[in-house]
Amino acid sequence: MNPAAAELWPYLMLIIVGYLPNEVWRVLGLVLARGLNEDSEIVMWSRAVATAILAGVIAKLILFSSGALDTIPIWVRVAATVCGFLGFVLIKRSALAGVLIGLTTLVVGGYLTAH
């Protein structure tokens, strides 16, 4: 590959591998959502599917981590998730409290298991 092509390669990847396969779902949603109202059955079903996919992404990021997160044992990651969630439920349903408790548990657990 000549230098100019090597320089442009990541930008080409960005459009072809990043932008297009990602954006197609938004455009599809835009086209197919015409004329639907917020209580219609297909919108309800779509919301349930979106929530389940999001839950799947969450499970994937926690259980099958990559990079630096993979250096933390899986049971520490799961325990941190449970602690964070319990913190959220018990402390007046404060999302920020839950997130902070989860992060703290992960850092402390990660530090203790590494030493």
């Binding site: 990602n22 197609v24 779902w25 599809l28 779509s46 979106a50 992404v57």
Partner: peptide, 16 residues
């Protein structure tokens, strides 16, 4: 593209 499927039902439920 698989990771982005969730965007479809999100757009469908948001636009109304």
């Amino acid at each position: 593209s698989l990771s982005a499927i969730r965007l479809f039902p999100m757009v469908v439920s948001l636009l109304p």
